[in-house]
Design a binder for these strands. Structure first.
Length: 476
RNA sequence: GCCCCGUUCGUCUAGCGGCCUAGGACGCCGGCCUUUCACGCCGGUAGCACGGGUUCGAAUCCCGUACGGGGUACCA
Protein backbone atom coordinates (compact mmCIF):
# COMPACT_ATOMS: atom_id res chain seq x y z
CA UNK A 1 0.00 0.00 0.00
CA UNK A 2 1.26 3.37 -1.01
CA UNK A 3 1.04 5.55 2.06
CA UNK A 4 1.24 9.32 2.08
CA UNK A 5 4.13 11.15 3.66
CA UNK A 6 3.42 12.01 7.30
CA UNK A 7 2.20 15.44 8.22
CA UNK A 8 1.12 16.41 4.74
CA UNK A 9 -2.21 17.82 5.78
CA UNK A 10 -4.06 18.58 8.96
CA UNK A 11 -7.39 16.94 8.25
CA UNK A 12 -7.82 13.65 6.49
CA UNK A 13 -11.32 12.34 5.85
CA UNK A 14 -11.87 9.06 4.22
CA UNK A 15 -14.67 7.78 2.07
CA UNK A 16 -14.78 4.01 1.96
CA UNK A 17 -17.37 2.52 -0.37
CA UNK A 18 -17.52 -1.18 -1.03
CA UNK A 19 -17.56 -2.01 -4.73
CA UNK A 20 -20.99 -3.38 -5.51
CA UNK A 21 -21.43 -2.71 -9.18
CA UNK A 22 -23.50 0.39 -8.69
CA UNK A 23 -23.09 3.77 -7.04
CA UNK A 24 -25.92 4.42 -4.61
CA UNK A 25 -27.34 7.94 -4.17
CA UNK A 26 -26.78 7.44 -0.44
CA UNK A 27 -23.14 6.74 -1.15
CA UNK A 28 -23.04 9.78 -3.37
CA UNK A 29 -24.31 11.98 -0.57
CA UNK A 30 -21.83 10.48 1.86
CA UNK A 31 -19.02 11.09 -0.63
CA UNK A 32 -20.19 14.67 -1.10
CA UNK A 33 -20.27 15.35 2.63
CA UNK A 34 -16.81 13.86 3.07
CA UNK A 35 -15.59 15.90 0.15
CA UNK A 36 -17.13 19.08 1.53
CA UNK A 37 -15.56 18.57 4.93
CA UNK A 38 -12.14 17.97 3.42
CA UNK A 39 -12.40 20.92 1.05
CA UNK A 40 -13.77 23.25 3.63
CA UNK A 41 -10.95 22.52 6.05
CA UNK A 42 -8.28 22.54 3.39
CA UNK A 43 -7.61 18.91 4.20
CA UNK A 44 -7.42 15.75 2.19
CA UNK A 45 -10.13 13.49 0.86
CA UNK A 46 -9.01 9.88 0.93
CA UNK A 47 -10.82 7.30 -1.15
CA UNK A 48 -10.46 3.73 -0.06
CA UNK A 49 -12.22 0.92 -1.84
CA UNK A 50 -13.34 -1.73 0.62
CA UNK A 51 -12.65 -4.63 -1.67
CA UNK A 52 -12.31 -7.14 1.12
CA UNK A 53 -14.13 -9.83 -0.74
CA UNK A 54 -11.71 -9.71 -3.60
CA UNK A 55 -13.16 -12.83 -5.17
CA UNK A 56 -16.50 -11.23 -5.77
CA UNK A 57 -15.10 -7.88 -6.76
CA UNK A 58 -14.88 -6.86 -10.38
CA UNK A 59 -12.43 -4.25 -11.65
CA UNK A 60 -15.14 -2.41 -13.55
CA UNK A 61 -17.03 -1.84 -10.33
CA UNK A 62 -14.18 0.19 -8.95
CA UNK A 63 -13.91 2.22 -12.11
CA UNK A 64 -17.66 2.67 -11.93
CA UNK A 65 -17.28 4.30 -8.54
CA UNK A 66 -14.55 6.58 -9.85
CA UNK A 67 -16.62 7.53 -12.88
CA UNK A 68 -19.70 8.22 -10.81
CA UNK A 69 -17.78 10.37 -8.36
CA UNK A 70 -16.11 12.25 -11.20
CA UNK A 71 -19.49 12.94 -12.77
CA UNK A 72 -20.41 14.75 -9.57
CA UNK A 73 -17.21 16.77 -9.59
CA UNK A 74 -15.08 14.65 -7.29
CA UNK A 75 -12.07 14.11 -9.50
CA UNK A 76 -9.03 12.02 -8.75
CA UNK A 77 -7.02 14.83 -10.39
CA UNK A 78 -8.04 17.25 -7.67
CA UNK A 79 -5.02 18.02 -5.47
CA UNK A 80 -6.98 17.29 -2.32
CA UNK A 81 -8.12 13.91 -3.63
CA UNK A 82 -6.02 10.97 -2.53
CA UNK A 83 -6.37 7.41 -3.69
CA UNK A 84 -8.02 5.22 -4.56
CA UNK A 85 -6.45 2.83 -2.12
CA UNK A 86 -7.57 -0.74 -1.83
CA UNK A 87 -8.29 -2.46 1.42
CA UNK A 88 -7.15 -5.79 0.04
CA UNK A 89 -3.68 -4.34 -0.54
CA UNK A 90 -3.34 -3.83 3.19
CA UNK A 91 -4.07 -7.41 4.22
CA UNK A 92 -0.69 -8.15 5.75
CA UNK A 93 -0.96 -5.09 7.97
CA UNK A 94 -4.33 -6.32 9.14
CA UNK A 95 -3.06 -9.69 10.24
CA UNK A 96 -0.01 -8.08 11.83
CA UNK A 97 -2.29 -5.89 13.90
CA UNK A 98 -4.34 -8.91 14.96
CA UNK A 99 -1.12 -10.63 16.02
CA UNK A 100 -0.08 -7.60 17.99
CA UNK A 101 -3.36 -7.43 19.86
CA UNK A 102 -2.99 -11.08 20.78
CA UNK A 103 0.59 -10.60 21.96
CA UNK A 104 -0.47 -7.65 24.08
CA UNK A 105 -3.18 -9.70 25.67
CA UNK A 106 -5.88 -7.51 24.21
CA UNK A 107 -7.24 -10.48 22.31
CA UNK A 108 -7.45 -14.23 22.81
CA UNK A 109 -8.12 -17.31 20.76
CA UNK A 110 -11.43 -19.08 20.92
CA UNK A 111 -12.44 -22.48 19.59
CA UNK A 112 -16.15 -22.25 20.31
CA UNK A 113 -18.39 -23.07 17.42
CA UNK A 114 -21.40 -20.99 16.63
CA UNK A 115 -23.59 -23.77 18.01
CA UNK A 116 -21.64 -23.90 21.30
CA UNK A 117 -22.11 -20.22 21.85
CA UNK A 118 -25.76 -20.27 20.89
CA UNK A 119 -26.48 -23.13 23.27
CA UNK A 120 -24.76 -21.39 26.17
CA UNK A 121 -26.20 -17.95 25.59
CA UNK A 122 -29.76 -18.84 24.67
CA UNK A 123 -31.20 -16.79 27.50
CA UNK A 124 -28.52 -14.17 27.80
CA UNK A 125 -28.88 -10.59 26.70
CA UNK A 126 -25.52 -10.20 25.08
CA UNK A 127 -23.80 -12.30 22.45
CA UNK A 128 -20.62 -14.22 23.20
CA UNK A 129 -20.23 -15.22 26.85
CA UNK A 130 -16.44 -15.05 27.19
CA UNK A 131 -16.07 -18.79 27.49
CA UNK A 132 -12.47 -18.89 26.22
CA UNK A 133 -11.30 -15.70 27.86
CA UNK A 134 -9.04 -17.27 30.43
CA UNK A 135 -8.30 -20.57 28.72
CA UNK A 136 -5.02 -19.30 27.29
CA UNK A 137 -5.54 -20.99 23.94
CA UNK A 138 -2.77 -20.55 21.38
CA UNK A 139 -3.43 -20.09 17.73
CA UNK A 140 -4.49 -23.11 15.76
CA UNK A 141 -6.29 -23.37 12.48
CA UNK A 142 -9.96 -22.83 12.99
CA UNK A 143 -9.58 -20.79 16.16
CA UNK A 144 -10.92 -17.27 15.94
CA UNK A 145 -9.30 -14.32 17.64
CA UNK A 146 -11.57 -12.33 19.94
CA UNK A 147 -11.06 -8.87 21.32
CA UNK A 148 -11.20 -8.67 25.10
CA UNK A 149 -13.68 -5.90 25.88
CA UNK A 150 -13.53 -4.17 29.27
CA UNK A 151 -15.96 -5.44 31.90
CA UNK A 152 -16.59 -2.05 33.41
CA UNK A 153 -16.82 1.58 32.45
CA UNK A 154 -18.16 3.03 29.27
CA UNK A 155 -16.95 4.06 25.87
CA UNK A 156 -17.88 7.46 24.61
CA UNK A 157 -17.94 8.13 20.91
CA UNK A 158 -17.14 11.65 19.78
CA UNK A 159 -19.73 12.21 17.07
CA UNK A 160 -20.11 15.58 15.40
CA UNK A 161 -23.68 14.89 14.35
CA UNK A 162 -25.32 13.11 17.26
CA UNK A 163 -23.72 14.44 20.36
CA UNK A 164 -21.57 11.85 22.05
CA UNK A 165 -23.33 8.54 22.44
CA UNK A 166 -21.91 6.40 25.18
CA UNK A 167 -21.95 2.64 25.40
CA UNK A 168 -21.64 0.48 28.48
CA UNK A 169 -18.56 -1.70 28.05
CA UNK A 170 -20.33 -4.49 29.89
CA UNK A 171 -22.78 -4.97 27.04
CA UNK A 172 -20.02 -5.09 24.44
CA UNK A 173 -19.30 -8.73 23.77
CA UNK A 174 -15.85 -10.11 23.04
CA UNK A 175 -16.16 -9.80 19.29
CA UNK A 176 -14.18 -11.64 16.66
CA UNK A 177 -11.36 -9.70 15.00
CA UNK A 178 -9.70 -12.47 13.02
CA UNK A 179 -11.13 -15.60 11.47
CA UNK A 180 -10.01 -19.18 11.95
CA UNK A 181 -7.72 -18.83 8.96
CA UNK A 182 -5.98 -15.83 10.51
CA UNK A 183 -7.51 -13.19 8.26
CA UNK A 184 -8.85 -10.02 9.83
CA UNK A 185 -12.53 -9.21 9.74
CA UNK A 186 -13.90 -5.97 8.39
CA UNK A 187 -14.09 -4.27 11.77
CA UNK A 188 -10.36 -4.64 12.43
CA UNK A 189 -9.30 -4.10 8.83
CA UNK A 190 -11.10 -0.79 8.86
CA UNK A 191 -9.39 0.39 11.99
CA UNK A 192 -5.97 -0.65 10.74
CA UNK A 193 -6.53 1.09 7.41
CA UNK A 194 -7.75 4.27 9.06
CA UNK A 195 -4.77 4.31 11.39
CA UNK A 196 -2.25 3.61 8.68
CA UNK A 197 -3.75 6.31 6.48
CA UNK A 198 -3.74 8.68 9.43
CA UNK A 199 -7.44 9.39 9.10
CA UNK A 200 -8.69 12.12 11.40
CA UNK A 201 -12.39 12.16 10.50
CA UNK A 202 -14.67 9.29 9.72
CA UNK A 203 -17.97 10.31 8.15
CA UNK A 204 -20.18 7.34 7.34
CA UNK A 205 -23.69 5.96 7.55
CA UNK A 206 -25.40 5.60 10.90
CA UNK A 207 -25.63 1.85 10.44
CA UNK A 208 -22.03 1.84 11.62
CA UNK A 209 -22.71 3.64 14.87
CA UNK A 210 -23.12 0.46 16.97
CA UNK A 211 -19.73 -0.72 15.71
CA UNK A 212 -18.01 2.45 16.70
CA UNK A 213 -17.31 1.73 20.38
CA UNK A 214 -15.71 -1.56 19.35
CA UNK A 215 -13.56 0.19 16.81
CA UNK A 216 -12.58 2.86 19.29
CA UNK A 217 -11.47 0.20 21.72
CA UNK A 218 -9.25 -1.22 19.01
CA UNK A 219 -7.78 2.15 18.11
CA UNK A 220 -6.72 2.64 21.70
CA UNK A 221 -5.46 -0.92 22.06
CA UNK A 222 -3.33 -0.24 19.01
CA UNK A 223 -2.00 2.84 20.76
CA UNK A 224 -3.73 5.54 18.75
CA UNK A 225 -6.38 8.04 19.79
CA UNK A 226 -9.60 7.42 17.88
CA UNK A 227 -10.69 9.83 15.14
CA UNK A 228 -13.62 12.18 15.22
CA UNK A 229 -16.74 10.49 13.96
CA UNK A 230 -19.86 11.69 12.20
CA UNK A 231 -22.67 9.27 11.55
CA UNK A 232 -25.01 10.38 8.79
CA UNK A 233 -28.71 9.61 8.93
CA UNK A 234 -29.90 7.06 6.43
CA UNK A 235 -31.86 8.01 3.34
CA UNK A 236 -35.28 6.39 3.26
CA UNK A 237 -38.05 5.73 0.77
CA UNK A 238 -41.68 6.86 1.07
CA UNK A 239 -42.28 4.04 3.52
CA UNK A 240 -39.48 5.29 5.75
CA UNK A 241 -37.33 2.31 5.05
CA UNK A 242 -33.67 2.55 4.24
CA UNK A 243 -33.22 2.88 0.49
CA UNK A 244 -32.58 -0.54 -0.94
CA UNK A 245 -31.33 -1.33 -4.38
CA UNK A 246 -33.78 -4.17 -4.67
CA UNK A 247 -36.97 -2.19 -4.24
CA UNK A 248 -35.98 1.41 -4.79
CA UNK A 249 -34.38 3.31 -7.60
CA UNK A 250 -31.07 4.24 -6.07
CA UNK A 251 -28.37 4.07 -8.73
CA UNK A 252 -26.84 7.45 -9.42
CA UNK A 253 -26.36 6.56 -13.06
CA UNK A 254 -30.07 5.83 -13.46
CA UNK A 255 -30.93 9.36 -12.45
CA UNK A 256 -28.30 10.82 -14.74
CA UNK A 257 -29.54 8.60 -17.55
CA UNK A 258 -33.02 10.02 -17.01
CA UNK A 259 -31.77 13.49 -17.61
CA UNK A 260 -30.96 14.72 -14.12
CA UNK A 261 -28.06 17.13 -14.38
CA UNK A 262 -25.07 16.29 -12.17
CA UNK A 263 -25.09 19.79 -10.70
CA UNK A 264 -28.75 19.48 -9.78
CA UNK A 265 -28.09 16.12 -8.18
CA UNK A 266 -25.18 17.47 -6.18
CA UNK A 267 -27.22 20.44 -5.04
CA UNK A 268 -30.15 18.26 -4.03
CA UNK A 269 -28.03 15.67 -2.27
CA UNK A 270 -26.21 18.31 -0.24
CA UNK A 271 -29.58 19.52 1.03
CA UNK A 272 -30.72 16.09 2.18
CA UNK A 273 -30.20 16.33 5.90
CA UNK A 274 -28.52 19.69 5.81
CA UNK A 275 -29.45 23.26 5.07
CA UNK A 276 -27.19 26.10 3.95
CA UNK A 277 -29.22 28.68 5.81
CA UNK A 278 -32.56 30.29 5.76
CA UNK A 279 -33.45 31.05 2.22
CA UNK A 280 -31.94 29.99 -1.04
CA UNK A 281 -31.53 26.35 -1.78
CA UNK A 282 -30.28 26.48 -5.33
CA UNK A 283 -26.63 27.30 -4.85
CA UNK A 284 -23.38 26.54 -6.64
CA UNK A 285 -21.29 23.80 -5.11
CA UNK A 286 -18.54 26.24 -4.11
CA UNK A 287 -21.03 28.18 -2.01
CA UNK A 288 -22.43 25.03 -0.49
CA UNK A 289 -18.94 23.98 0.52
CA UNK A 290 -18.24 27.37 2.03
CA UNK A 291 -21.31 27.11 4.18
CA UNK A 292 -21.09 23.42 4.92
CA UNK A 293 -20.76 22.33 8.50
CA UNK A 294 -20.93 18.64 9.27
CA UNK A 295 -22.10 19.46 12.78
CA UNK A 296 -25.15 21.07 11.26
CA UNK A 297 -26.28 17.89 9.58
CA UNK A 298 -29.58 16.58 10.90
CA UNK A 299 -29.66 13.33 12.79
CA UNK A 300 -33.04 12.18 11.52
CA UNK A 301 -33.41 10.07 8.41
CA UNK A 302 -34.44 11.87 5.24
CA UNK A 303 -36.80 10.94 2.43
CA UNK A 304 -35.35 11.01 -1.07
CA UNK A 305 -37.89 13.16 -2.87
CA UNK A 306 -37.62 12.71 -6.61
CA UNK A 307 -40.16 15.48 -7.20
CA UNK A 308 -38.00 18.05 -5.51
CA UNK A 309 -34.93 16.73 -7.28
CA UNK A 310 -36.76 17.12 -10.58
CA UNK A 311 -37.81 20.63 -9.70
CA UNK A 312 -34.19 21.54 -8.95
CA UNK A 313 -33.25 20.00 -12.26
CA UNK A 314 -35.69 22.25 -14.08
CA UNK A 315 -34.08 25.27 -12.48
CA UNK A 316 -30.64 24.09 -13.51
CA UNK A 317 -31.84 23.53 -17.06
CA UNK A 318 -33.24 27.03 -17.27
CA UNK A 319 -30.06 28.48 -15.85
CA UNK A 320 -27.99 27.07 -18.72
CA UNK A 321 -27.09 29.04 -21.82
CA UNK A 322 -28.79 27.87 -24.98
CA UNK A 323 -25.51 26.45 -26.19
CA UNK A 324 -25.02 24.47 -22.99
CA UNK A 325 -28.58 23.24 -23.19
CA UNK A 326 -28.17 22.05 -26.76
CA UNK A 327 -25.02 20.24 -25.79
CA UNK A 328 -26.60 18.68 -22.73
CA UNK A 329 -29.46 17.33 -24.83
CA UNK A 330 -27.00 15.44 -27.01
CA UNK A 331 -27.49 11.96 -25.57
CA UNK A 332 -31.25 12.16 -26.00
CA UNK A 333 -31.08 13.14 -29.64
CA UNK A 334 -29.64 9.86 -30.80
CA UNK A 335 -30.55 6.20 -30.51
CA UNK A 336 -31.51 4.47 -28.35
CA UNK A 337 -33.34 7.41 -26.78
CA UNK A 338 -34.39 9.02 -30.03
CA UNK A 339 -36.62 7.16 -32.51
CA UNK A 340 -35.13 8.91 -35.53
CA UNK A 341 -31.98 8.15 -37.50
CA UNK A 342 -28.91 10.40 -37.63
CA UNK A 343 -29.85 11.20 -41.22
CA UNK A 344 -33.26 12.45 -40.18
CA UNK A 345 -31.86 14.67 -37.46
CA UNK A 346 -31.37 18.31 -38.36
CA UNK A 347 -28.98 20.23 -36.16
CA UNK A 348 -30.08 23.67 -37.31
CA UNK A 349 -33.74 22.86 -36.78
CA UNK A 350 -33.00 21.64 -33.30
CA UNK A 351 -31.01 24.75 -32.48
CA UNK A 352 -33.94 26.86 -33.65
CA UNK A 353 -36.47 25.10 -31.45
CA UNK A 354 -34.21 24.44 -28.44
CA UNK A 355 -34.88 27.72 -26.59
CA UNK A 356 -38.58 26.94 -26.53
CA UNK A 357 -37.91 23.55 -25.05
CA UNK A 358 -35.41 24.77 -22.50
CA UNK A 359 -37.92 26.90 -20.65
CA UNK A 360 -40.31 24.07 -20.01
CA UNK A 361 -38.34 20.87 -19.41
CA UNK A 362 -37.70 19.43 -15.99
CA UNK A 363 -35.85 16.38 -17.28
CA UNK A 364 -33.46 16.40 -20.22
CA UNK A 365 -34.87 13.08 -21.33
CA UNK A 366 -38.18 14.82 -22.08
CA UNK A 367 -36.57 16.61 -24.99
CA UNK A 368 -37.08 13.61 -27.26
CA UNK A 369 -40.86 13.67 -27.30
CA UNK A 370 -40.90 17.43 -27.57
CA UNK A 371 -38.99 17.60 -30.82
CA UNK A 372 -39.68 14.27 -32.50
CA UNK A 373 -42.20 15.86 -34.88
CA UNK A 374 -39.30 17.72 -36.50
CA UNK A 375 -37.32 14.65 -37.39
CA UNK A 376 -39.77 11.84 -37.89
CA UNK A 377 -41.30 11.45 -41.35
CA UNK A 378 -44.79 11.68 -39.92
CA UNK A 379 -46.11 12.96 -36.59
CA UNK A 380 -46.47 10.36 -33.86
CA UNK A 381 -49.78 8.56 -33.84
CA UNK A 382 -51.46 9.43 -30.56
CA UNK A 383 -55.08 8.32 -30.60
CA UNK A 384 -56.07 10.23 -27.47
CA UNK A 385 -54.78 13.50 -28.89
CA UNK A 386 -56.46 12.87 -32.22
CA UNK A 387 -59.84 12.13 -30.70
CA UNK A 388 -59.66 15.14 -28.45
CA UNK A 389 -58.69 17.68 -31.10
CA UNK A 390 -60.41 16.42 -34.22
CA UNK A 391 -64.01 16.85 -33.13
CA UNK A 392 -66.29 19.23 -35.02
CA UNK A 393 -65.65 21.75 -36.38
CA UNK A 394 -62.07 20.62 -36.81
CA UNK A 395 -62.38 19.17 -40.36
CA UNK A 396 -63.75 22.36 -41.89
CA UNK A 397 -61.37 24.52 -39.92
CA UNK A 398 -58.38 22.45 -40.88
CA UNK A 399 -59.35 22.61 -44.55
CA UNK A 400 -59.57 26.39 -44.40
CA UNK A 401 -56.30 26.66 -42.55
CA UNK A 402 -54.70 24.47 -45.17
CA UNK A 403 -55.86 26.71 -47.98
CA UNK A 404 -54.75 29.87 -46.22
CA UNK A 405 -51.41 28.36 -45.29
CA UNK A 406 -50.65 27.51 -48.89
CA UNK A 407 -50.91 31.15 -49.83
CA UNK A 408 -49.10 32.63 -46.84
CA UNK A 409 -46.36 34.96 -47.97
CA UNK A 410 -43.81 34.70 -45.19
CA UNK A 411 -43.60 31.43 -43.32
CA UNK A 412 -42.83 32.77 -39.89
CA UNK A 413 -44.33 32.40 -36.44
CA UNK A 414 -46.01 35.79 -36.27
CA UNK A 415 -47.89 35.65 -39.58
CA UNK A 416 -48.73 32.01 -38.94
CA UNK A 417 -50.31 33.00 -35.67
CA UNK A 418 -52.33 35.78 -37.31
CA UNK A 419 -53.50 33.40 -39.97
CA UNK A 420 -54.75 30.73 -37.60
CA UNK A 421 -56.34 33.40 -35.44
CA UNK A 422 -58.30 34.73 -38.42
CA UNK A 423 -59.41 31.38 -39.74
CA UNK A 424 -60.40 30.38 -36.24
CA UNK A 425 -62.45 33.52 -35.80
CA UNK A 426 -64.27 32.77 -39.05
CA UNK A 427 -65.33 29.51 -37.43
CA UNK A 428 -66.26 31.21 -34.20
CA UNK A 429 -63.23 29.84 -32.36
CA UNK A 430 -60.68 31.51 -30.17
CA UNK A 431 -57.07 30.85 -30.91
CA UNK A 432 -56.79 28.44 -28.00
CA UNK A 433 -59.34 26.17 -29.60
CA UNK A 434 -58.40 26.79 -33.19
CA UNK A 435 -54.78 25.83 -32.79
CA UNK A 436 -55.57 22.38 -31.44
CA UNK A 437 -56.39 20.56 -34.70
CA UNK A 438 -53.43 22.20 -36.42
CA UNK A 439 -51.18 21.11 -33.60
CA UNK A 440 -52.33 17.53 -33.67
CA UNK A 441 -52.18 17.36 -37.46
CA UNK A 442 -48.60 18.60 -37.58
CA UNK A 443 -47.05 17.34 -34.35
CA UNK A 444 -49.32 14.46 -33.44
CA UNK A 445 -49.92 15.64 -29.90
CA UNK A 446 -52.32 17.91 -28.12
CA UNK A 447 -49.57 19.41 -25.99
CA UNK A 448 -46.13 20.53 -27.01
CA UNK A 449 -43.85 23.39 -27.82
CA UNK A 450 -45.32 26.74 -28.99
CA UNK A 451 -47.14 25.84 -32.20
CA UNK A 452 -46.25 28.66 -34.56
CA UNK A 453 -42.56 28.56 -33.76
CA UNK A 454 -42.76 24.82 -34.31
CA UNK A 455 -44.46 25.28 -37.68
CA UNK A 456 -41.87 27.82 -38.71
CA UNK A 457 -39.10 25.32 -38.06
CA UNK A 458 -41.07 22.46 -39.60
CA UNK A 459 -41.37 24.34 -42.88
CA UNK A 460 -44.26 24.95 -45.21
CA UNK A 461 -43.92 21.85 -47.29
CA UNK A 462 -43.96 19.34 -44.49
CA UNK A 463 -46.67 21.22 -42.62
CA UNK A 464 -48.97 21.14 -45.63
CA UNK A 465 -48.27 17.48 -46.30
CA UNK A 466 -49.19 16.61 -42.74
CA UNK A 467 -52.37 18.63 -42.77
CA UNK A 468 -53.35 16.96 -46.03
CA UNK A 469 -52.76 13.58 -44.46
CA UNK A 470 -54.94 14.56 -41.52
CA UNK A 471 -57.71 15.75 -43.84
CA UNK A 472 -57.59 12.48 -45.69
CA UNK A 473 -57.81 10.58 -42.45
CA UNK A 474 -60.75 12.72 -41.35
CA UNK A 475 -62.72 12.13 -44.54
CA UNK A 476 -62.11 8.40 -44.46
C1' G B 1 -34.59 -10.09 23.91
C1' C B 2 -30.47 -6.57 24.39
C1' C B 3 -27.86 -2.01 22.68
C1' C B 4 -27.98 2.54 20.00
C1' C B 5 -30.24 6.48 17.15
C1' G B 6 -34.32 9.39 15.86
C1' U B 7 -39.49 12.31 15.95
C1' U B 8 -41.08 20.71 13.36
C1' C B 9 -46.39 21.37 7.40
C1' G B 10 -47.48 15.39 2.78
C1' U B 11 -41.76 15.94 1.88
C1' C B 12 -36.69 18.46 2.71
C1' U B 13 -35.73 21.90 6.29
C1' A B 14 -35.03 27.11 9.50
C1' G B 15 -35.29 27.32 14.69
C1' C B 16 -30.20 25.98 19.25
C1' G B 17 -35.26 29.62 26.23
C1' G B 18 -38.39 35.33 24.85
C1' C B 19 -37.30 37.89 17.68
C1' C B 20 -42.59 32.01 16.70
C1' U B 21 -49.35 34.78 15.41
C1' A B 22 -43.45 28.73 13.94
C1' G B 23 -40.01 31.03 8.42
C1' G B 24 -38.32 28.98 3.47
C1' A B 25 -38.32 25.22 -0.44
C1' C B 26 -40.76 21.01 -3.14
C1' G B 27 -45.71 19.14 -3.64
C1' C B 28 -50.81 20.31 -3.69
C1' C B 29 -54.96 24.06 -4.49
C1' G B 30 -56.59 28.88 -6.59
C1' G B 31 -55.57 33.24 -9.62
C1' C B 32 -52.82 36.21 -13.26
C1' C B 33 -50.10 35.73 -17.84
C1' U B 34 -51.05 32.80 -22.23
C1' U B 35 -51.46 29.67 -28.96
C1' U B 36 -51.65 23.88 -25.95
C1' C B 37 -48.43 22.39 -22.04
C1' A B 38 -45.04 24.62 -19.32
C1' C B 39 -42.07 28.91 -17.41
C1' G B 40 -42.87 33.26 -14.64
C1' C B 41 -45.63 36.11 -11.06
C1' C B 42 -49.38 36.50 -6.98
C1' G B 43 -52.14 34.08 -3.19
C1' G B 44 -53.71 29.78 -0.27
C1' U B 45 -53.48 24.87 2.34
C1' A B 46 -50.77 22.32 6.08
C1' G B 47 -46.58 21.12 11.21
C1' C B 48 -43.58 21.51 16.75
C1' A B 49 -45.75 12.82 18.21
C1' C B 50 -47.96 12.41 23.37
C1' G B 51 -47.66 13.13 28.83
C1' G B 52 -45.18 15.10 32.81
C1' G B 53 -41.61 18.40 34.78
C1' U B 54 -37.77 22.85 35.03
C1' U B 55 -38.60 28.23 34.07
C1' C B 56 -41.53 34.60 34.72
C1' G B 57 -41.41 32.26 29.77
C1' A B 58 -40.27 25.92 25.94
C1' A B 59 -40.67 23.83 19.27
C1' U B 60 -36.10 24.81 21.94
C1' C B 61 -33.72 22.01 28.56
C1' C B 62 -34.93 17.26 31.69
C1' C B 63 -37.79 12.61 32.48
C1' G B 64 -41.19 9.17 30.80
C1' U B 65 -44.61 7.01 26.89
C1' A B 66 -45.73 5.97 21.93
C1' C B 67 -44.17 5.31 17.19
C1' G B 68 -40.19 4.84 13.51
C1' G B 69 -35.13 3.37 12.24
C1' G B 70 -30.37 0.94 12.82
C1' G B 71 -27.26 -2.82 15.08
C1' U B 72 -26.79 -7.38 17.43
C1' A B 73 -22.31 -13.02 12.10
C1' C B 74 -15.46 -16.46 12.03
C1' C B 75 -20.78 -10.38 6.25
C1' A B 76 -19.19 -5.80 4.73
Amino acid sequence: MNLPAPGSSPIRVRFAPSPTGMFHVGGARSALFNWAVAKRAGGTFVLRIEDTDAARNKPEWTSGILTAMASLGMHAEDPTFEGPYFQSANASLHTEAAQRLYTQGAAYYCDCTREDVAARTANAQTGYDGHCRERGLAYAAGRALRFRTPDEGETQVIDLIRGNPTFLNAVLEDFVIARGDGSAVFLLANVVDDISMRITHVIRGEEHLPNTPKQQLMWRALGVEPPTWAHLPVIVNERRQKLSKRRDKVALEDFLADGILPDAMVNYLMLLGWSPGNDEEILPFETLIERFDIAGVNSASAFFDVKKLTSFNGEYIRAMSTQEFIKACGPWLVAPHAPWTPEQFDEAAFAAIAPHAQSRLALLSDITNNVDFLFLDAPVDDAASWDKAMKEPAPALLADVRTALAGLETWQAEPLKELVTEVGAAHGLKLGKAQAPVRVATTGRTVGLPLFESLEVLGRERALTRIDAALTKLSA
